[in-house]
Design a protein around this nucleic acid. Structure first.
Lengths: 318, 318
DNA sequence: GTGAAAGCGCTAACAC
DNA sequence: GTGTTAGCGCTTTCAC
C-alpha cells in the first residue's frame, strides 16, 4: 500500500505539498498539483480513510440501520436516501443486526438513520451522547441529537377505518403486528379513534408479527371460529397476503365473505387476486426527505419531527 | 467524546493498561479489568474505529456493493451473507453507486463482494492491487486477489431450453437483459447450446435491460408483429412479468398463444396469473457460501471460482 | 502487572 | 509556494 509518503518521495516534495495538491488547495499551482496527482495515480496511491477520519474527526458517511434485508418495504426507501445523499457527496452504507451495533458504537459514520426495532431506545439515547444526528423512523424518540420522522400511521388508519365503516362493515377485527412497536400501536390507535367516533368497539384482535407466516397462522384460527369478523384490518400487507391465501384455500371469499386491508402497499399487493386495498407510502420520496433533513442536521440546523402521510389505495379486497 | 486517555485518567492508570483491560489481555487481573471496564462505561467511552483501524491496518468489515436497492433479487442474498459474517464477528455493510466507489477506494473494508455491473473490470483490477480479497458475483474476472462466484447461467438455461423443446415449442425467441453483462451473455449461451444440439436456431432476439418496463416495451412490439414466436425465454423474471402483463392486456393468452419463462424466480412470479416458470436460485444459501469463502480468503486461503446451480421451476407460463 | 513511547497515515497550523 | 511538525486515538513493543 502506497502512502502519502511514497507519493512525496516519488514526487520529490514534502507530504504536506502532496496533501495540499491532492485536496486541491489553491496555494499549489495547477501544474505542480497535476504532476503530483499523476504520480499518485501511477504508484496506485489511494488515501486511507482510517487516517483521514482520525485526523478530521469525521467520516463523510451516513449509516442506515434496518432490521433485515428480506423485507419488501426498505428497497425504495434506501434508494431514496442514497439518491439524495449522493448528490451531496456523502457515502451511504446500510447495515443490519450486529453490524449496525458495531458501526454505531464505533462511530464509523457521521450520522445515522434507524429503522430497526431491535435497536433499543436506551442504546440510542446512550449513543446520542457522542454521536451527532440520528433520525429514527420506527419510534417516537426525541432529544437534542435524535429526531424522529415516522409515518403518520394514526391518521392513515383512521381514514381507512372510516372508509371501511362507510362501506357497511360492522364486525371489524385488527390483526396486530409486533405488539409493542410504534408502527403497530399507532396504527391500532387510528382504528380505535375512528371506531370510537362511531360508537363502535373493535370486534376482535389477532396477534401476528408482521410476517406472512404469522398471517397464515391467524387465518387458520379464523377458519375454525364460529363467529367471524366481517372485516380484517391488518397491520401490514404481508400479514394480509398470508391471511388471504389461507382464507381463499378454505373457500372464504374475499371480499364477499370477509373484507381485508393492509398497510404499506408493497408491490405484491397489486398482483394478488383480489388486489389488496392498502395504505401507500411513497418510500422513495420519503427517503429523500429523510436524507435532506439529515444533511441539514449535519450542518447544525435544528429540525422538528415530521410525519409522512400515506394515501389510501382502495382496490378489491374490501 | 471520551477517549482512552479520559478512561486512563478516571481510572488512575496508563492508557496501555486501559487498552489491555478493554481488550481482555490476560496480563491484567480480572478485578482491575472489571474496574476499568466499569469506569469506561460510566464515562461513556467507546473506542474510535478510525484510530483502531489506522493502527491495526484492518477494519473487520466487509463491503457488499450492489447495483441498486430496488431490485427484488438481492434481499435474501444479503441476509445470507450477513448471517454468516455475523457468526464470525465481522461487520457487513452494503452500499451502491458512488458510495461503493468511495468505500472501495478508501479501503473502509477488509474485503468486498461485488454485484454491480456499473463497477468496471478495470477499476476492480486496479483495486485488487491494494485491496485483499474481492469476490465478484456478476462477471468472470480472476486474479490472485479476485475470485468469482457466479450463477451457472449456462447450465440452467440449457436445461430450461431442453424442457421447452420437449414441450413442442418451435419458434423460440430470447429476451436479452443488459446486453454485455455476464449474466445475459451466459444465459443466452445456454439457450443456443440447447438449440444447436437440436439443429435449431434462435427464432428472434429482443433487447431489454432486465427491468419490467423494458419488458412492457418489448411486448408492445411483439403485439404488432405478424409472425410471432411461440415461446419467449426471458433473461430474468422482471422482464417476463412486464411482457406478460402487456400481452394479456392485448388478449394474447399465456401459455395457449405463447409460452414464456423467466430467471431468478422472484417472489412475485409465483403470484402472477399465470404463475411464471423460472429458474430458482437459493439466494440465502448462496450468500452464506459466498461469506464462507470470503472468510477463508481473509485467512489467506486460495479458493477456486465456483458456479451456483439453479433449479428449474415449471409452473404455468409455458 | 504496569507504564512510556513509537507509530499507523493523514491534515493543517505555522514557519520560512 | 513549500516544508516541518504536532497530533488525531488507538495498539503494542519494550522497559521496569
Amino acid at each position: 500500500m502506497a502512502t502519502i509518503k511514497d507519493v512525496a518521495k516519488a514526487a520529490g516534495c514534502s507530504i504536506s505539498t502532496v496533501s495540499y495538491a491532492l485536496n486541491n488547495d489553491k496555494r499549489i499551482p495547477e501544474v505542480t498539483a497535476n504532476r503530483i496527482k499523476k504520480i499518485a495515480d501511477e504508484i496506485n496511491y489511494l488515501p486511507s480513510a482510517a487516517a483521514r477520519n482520525l485526523k478530521k474527526q469525521n467520516t463523510n458517511t451516513i449509516l442506515v440501520a434496518i432490521s433485515n434485508f428480506g423485507g419488501p418495504v426498505y428497497n425504495e426507501l434506501l434508494d431514496g436516501i442514497h439518491n439524495e445523499l449522493a448528490k451531496h457527496e456523502y457515502t451511504m452504507v446500510v447495515s443490519t443486526g450486529a453490524s449496525s451495533d458495531n458501526m454505531l458504537k464505533q462511530r464509523t459514520a457521521d450520522g445515522a438513520i434507524i429503522s430497526d426495532i431491535n435497536i433499543s431506545d436506551k442504546f440510542l439515547r446512550q449513543l446520542s451522547k457522542n454521536f451527532k444526528p440520528i433520525i429514527v423512523l420506527d419510534r417516537s424518540l426525541n432529544n437534542q441529537n435524535i429526531n424522529n420522522m415516522t409515518i403518520d400511521n394514526l391518521k392513515a388508519m383512521y381514514l381507512l377505518t372510516q372508509d371501511v365503516l362507510s362501506k357497511g362493515y360492522k364486525k371489524i377485527a385488527y390483526v396486530h403486528g409486533v405488539k409493542d412497536t410504534y408502527d403497530n400501536k399507532t396504527r391500532f390507535s387510528g382504528i380505535q379513534k375512528a371506531l370510537r367516533e362511531n360508537n363502535l368497539e373493535i370486534f376482535k384482535e389477532y396477534f401476528g408479527n408482521f410476517t406472512k407466516d404469522s398471517g397464515k397462522e391467524i387465518a387458520s384460527k379464523i377458519i375454525e371460529e364460529s363467529i367471524k369478523p366481517d372485516m380484517l384490518i391488518c397491520g401490514n400487507d404481508e400479514m394480509a397476503l398470508g391471511i388471504m391465501e389461507v382464507l381463499q384455500e378454505n373457500n372464504i371469499k374475499i371480499p364477499e365473505n370477509m373484507g381485508i386491508s393492509g398497510f404499506d402497499d408493497i408491490q405484491l399487493s397489486s398482483y394478488f387476486t383480489p388486489k389488496l386495498s392498502s395504505i401507500k407510502i411513497n418510500h422513495f420520496e420519503w427517503g429523500q426527505k429523510i436524507a435532506k433533513t439529515l444533511l441539514r442536521l449535519l450542518k447544525g440546523a435544528t429540525e422538528k419531527s415530521t410525519k409522512e402521510l400515506g394515501t389510501l389505495i382502495i382496490r378489491e379486497s374490501y
